[in-house]
Design a protein around this nucleic acid. Structure first.
Length: 426
DNA sequence: TCTGGGGTCCTAGGACCC
DNA sequence: TCTGGGGTCCTAGGACCC
């Protein structure tokens, strides 16, 4: 069944929201990230009553923050998301640094999604700044189709009976043109609702739409047919495929495969030998642009977690009190998140990252789902007793999985006596 | 100059049950 | 009293995504 799937991606989302707030920064090198300490200083000029803002720059930044989003001007200097800000400060010390304001971004996220939903209701959330949209039903049915072989009889009147599979698989010119107009309307609606630009691609499936939405960024509109795959998709690096990450990319590179086209040409059996049957078959399929995944309009969370990277690595004994306080705060935070969102879970997990960046996890499943901070703390505390504490620690995390809606929960807690908070890290 | 925080999914072994 | 074979749950780690 032929589908028309769009991928919509907001352009440099967090940074663009900040530029709405601070229009004077438009055109400047700006990065978003780090802690809360980089709020611009505001002063009122007594002579004219105007607000002057002084922004922090990356110059002299110390800490473990990473860039969440960089403006396009910043990207041109080599700054990018997930980059450590210490490193970014070396590349661009004069870059303006703004703190992350998730509440504001969530707000704009709701606005753009609502605007899209007005036009095309079948949307799949892929985080705060992107969505998939199934346009198939919005674009409407194909015009009454002629049998593909009856399209053009030869001048001599001989009927060509060769089935034209490839063409029959493609949308008609009418549908394609309606889909393009629709994508344009979606961009207009998003801009009207938020003042922000986005990039959209329309393609036969999610995989191709996702790749294609990057082709014309920012403020792009890309239409991609299956027949465009060899010319427009195959020359791209394999890493552009959603699901080929850094590790798989290095491995592919070592095997001499750099582009999606080279991946498409690889023998599927050979791919399976190197990557396992599942991933190998998947690599082969996606390189040929095949993807049957539906646009999923509703999903339930599987886990809720909180974690914190410390400003400095902490020692299990010497920093026991601080660790214990952070640990309790994380458990309290997870508990509050569970209650606010209406979930409880049975599997309590602990995550610990050592100073050498190696990470361990421990989890324990309890008899009944909980959202209780104390029970989470006690269970995660038990997990902590099962990990080595002979190295400094840089990150601590707490997770609750196996979620069920809390209104479906049998009330089980409350009768338990509250012991004093167990002593940990000793 | 070491690398955030929130998630999902997959793999693989062992327990346990039928 | 030589060990089959599913199915499901639990646990740990890791890749990947936004």
């Amino acid at each position: 069944m032929m589908r028309l799937i769009a991928h919509l991606d907001m352009d440099a989302f967090y940074a663009s929201v900040e530029l709405l707030r601070y229009p004077e920064l438009r055109g400047r090198v700006v990065v978003i990230g780090g802690g809360r300490r980089h709020q611009p200083d505001e002063a009122i000029d007594p002579t004219n009553g105007r607000v002057t803002r002084t922004f922090h720059t990356l110059h002299g930044y110390t800490g473990r923050g990473v860039i969440t989003t960089a403006t396009y001007e910043a990207r041109a200097l080599g700054l990018h998301s997930a980059q450590g800000m210490m490193k970014a400060a070396v590349l661009a010390p004069d870059a303006i640094l703004l703190p992350v304001d998730f509440d504001a971004y969530r707000n704009y996220s709701r606005l753009f999604k609502a605007a899209v939903r007005e036009i095309a209701p079948t949307i799949e959330d892929r985080g705060i700044d992107e969505i998939y949209i199934d346009l198939t039903d919005v674009v409407g049915p194909e015009p009454p189709s002629r049998p593909p072989w009856a399209a053009e009889d030869g001048a001599n009147g001989v009927l060509d009976m060769t089935p034209k599979i490839a063409e029959a698989d493609e949308p008609s010119r009418e549908c394609w043109s309606r889909a393009r107009d629709l994508a344009g309307s979606l961009k207009d609606a998003v801009r009207a609702a938020t003042g922000l630009t986005c990039s959209i691609a329309v393609a036969p499936n999610k995989l191709l739409a996702k790749i294609a939405s990057e082709l014309d960024k920012p403020d792009g509109l890309t239409m991609l047919r299956a027949s465009d795959i060899p010319a427009r998709i195959w020359p791209l690096p394999a890493r552009k495929i959603n699901g080929i990450g850094p590790k798989a990319n290095v491995k592919l590179d070592g095997l001499g495969i750099r582009t999606i086209g080279e991946l498409a040409a690889a023998d599927p059996a050979w791919l399976s030998e190197h990557f396992g049957a599942n991933y190998g078959a998947w690599l082969h399929a996606v390189a040929h642009g095949r993807d049957e995944r539906e646009v999923v309009t509703h999903s339930e969370p599987k886990s809720i977690s909180r974690e914190l990277t410390f400003e400095r690595d902490l020692h299990a004994q010497r920093d026991r009190e601080e660790l214990s306080r952070i640990f309790t705060d994380l458990c309290t935070g997870v508990s509050e998140d569970l209650q606010r969102k209406g979930y409880a879970g049975r599997t309590i997990g602990l995550k610990l990252r050592y100073d050498n960046f190696s990470t361990v996890t421990r989890d324990q499943t309890i008899a009944w789902p909980t959202q209780d901070a104390y029970l989470i703390r006690r269970t995660a505390g038990g997990c902590l007793k099962r990990v080595a504490l002979d190295r400094r620690i840089r990150l601590l995390g707490v997770r609750v999985g196996g979620l069920v809606p809390s209104d479906s929960m049998v009330a089980a807690s409350g009768s338990e006596a509250r012991e004093p908070t167990p002593s940990l890290f000793d």
